[in-house]
Amino acid sequence: MTGILFSLMAGSLVSIQAIFNSKVNERAGTWATTTLVLGLGFLASLTIGFILEGKQLFAWQEMQPWFWFSGLIGVGVVMSLVQAMKRLSPTIAIAIVMTSEVLFALLWDSLGWMGLEQVPFTINKLLGVLVIIGGIFVLKFGGKRERQKVSEAA
């Protein structure tokens, strides 16, 4: 249950953050915005982590070298989205991004990849994911109202 609540909280914050970031992006461009967003995310994590854990925050006992490169994934996200948005309308780009997110989630859960607890694949899970993807497309493309650019990307 708490897992569900945490997911809902993350999703709500992602949508607000997407709107705020798009307002910065309109003025400052992709990379100034990305640098600001990651820099502030770093400072906020550092601050909260230090308040909660003190010096423990810097005791990385089981550190592995590849951890240093995980930040590149976030940069990969920005690069891919910028390229996709350039070539597609924001609505279709976001619908495909979300479809890809949930399909890869199912794939990696089923494989039990990267030390994840393996969640066995079932036809029901695939059906559930397909209905969710259907919902995304109905929400994004149902009705022909002109939508404001800022909210399209959120």
């Binding site: 945490f6 999703g11 949508s15 989630a105």
Partner: peptide, 11 residues
């Protein structure tokens, strides 16, 4: 992951 991503997208 699947359930997390699904709930996140709904929210």
């Amino acid at each position: 992951v699947t359930l997390m991503v699904s709930m996140l997208l709904i929210a």
